[in-house]
Measured scan of single mutants.
Amino acid sequence: AEKTGIVNVSSSLNVREGASTSSKVIGSLSGNTKVTIVGEEGAFYKIEYKGSHGYVAKEYIKDIKDE
């Protein structure tokens, strides 16, 4: 049951290796980017990222929809 969301930041949002603010940053997404959410862990969504997965803070994702 995948969902999509939109990155809701003015600059960019860090994509992390794990569901923690201390996890390594593996990339970033600019505002209004559409993401595919494959799961959630605590305050983070697990998303599809560059052929693999990454984690982003839930508070910066809006317009969550079921695909």
Rank of each mutant, 00 (worst) to 15 (best):
E67N: 12
K58F: 03
E17P: 01
N8H: 11
F44Y: 15
Y49W: 11
S52E: 13
S11N: 13
K46D: 02
G54A: 11
I61Y: 01
I61C: 02
D66V: 12
L29R: 01
N8P: 03
G5S: 03
D63T: 14
K3A: 09
R16L: 14
E67I: 12
L13E: 03
R16F: 07
S11M: 15
G27Y: 04
A19L: 05
I64Y: 15
E40G: 06
Y55R: 00
E59D: 13
I37W: 02
E59R: 12
G18H: 09
E41C: 07
K65W: 14
Y49C: 03
F44C: 04
E67D: 14
F44V: 03
E59Y: 11
S11H: 09
S30V: 13
Y60R: 06
E40S: 14
L29M: 04
V7E: 02
K65N: 13
S28V: 12
E17Q: 11
S12Q: 15
H53N: 09
I6T: 15
A1E: 07
V25P: 07
N14I: 10
S11F: 13
S30A: 09
V56Y: 00
R16P: 00
K58L: 03
T33S: 13
E41S: 09
R16T: 10
E40R: 04
E48W: 09
N8Y: 09
T33R: 07
S20L: 13
F44Q: 02
I47K: 00
A1V: 11
E17N: 14
G54H: 02
E48P: 08
T21M: 14
Y49I: 04
G27I: 03
I26M: 07
T21C: 05
S22Q: 14
S52T: 09
V7S: 04
T21F: 13
I6E: 04
A43M: 15
E48D: 07
E17T: 08
G42M: 05
L13T: 12
I47R: 00
A57E: 11
V25W: 08
F44E: 01
G31L: 08
K65I: 12
T4M: 09
N8W: 07
G39L: 05
T33G: 04
S12G: 09
I37P: 01
K65R: 15
H53T: 06
V9H: 10
E67P: 14
K62D: 13
D66Y: 10
A1Q: 09
V25F: 05
S12F: 11
T21Q: 10
L13R: 02
K46C: 06
I47E: 00
Y55W: 13
A57Q: 13
S22W: 07
E41N: 07
L29C: 04
G18A: 08
S52W: 10
G51Q: 09
K50Q: 13
I6Q: 06
E2L: 15
I47Q: 00
Y60P: 02
F44M: 06
N8M: 10
A19P: 13
Y60E: 04
D63C: 05
R16N: 07
V35Y: 02
T33P: 03
I6K: 05
I64V: 14
Y60G: 15
K34R: 07
E48M: 15
K58Q: 09
E59G: 08
N32D: 15
G5Y: 04
G27D: 03
K62F: 10
I26Q: 03
I26A: 02
S23G: 10
E41I: 07
V15K: 00
G5K: 01
N8V: 09
S52I: 12
T4W: 11
Y45I: 04
S20D: 08
S12P: 12
K34W: 12
V35K: 00
A43H: 13
G42C: 04
S28M: 14
S22L: 14
G31E: 06
T4P: 06
V7A: 04
K24Y: 07
S20M: 09
I61W: 02
S52K: 07
E2F: 06
E41G: 04
Y49L: 03
E2H: 09
G31D: 12
Y60I: 03
I26P: 00
N32H: 05
S22N: 15
N14M: 07
H53G: 07
E67R: 01
T33F: 05
V7C: 03
G42T: 04
K46S: 03
E40P: 02
E41Q: 10
E17M: 09
A57D: 12
G54I: 01
K50I: 12
G54M: 02
E40V: 06
E41T: 05
S12L: 12
V7K: 01
Y49P: 00
S12I: 15
G27H: 02
K62N: 14
I37N: 00
D66W: 12
N8I: 08
N8G: 12
F44R: 00
V9L: 10
V25L: 13
K46Q: 10
G5W: 05
V38G: 02
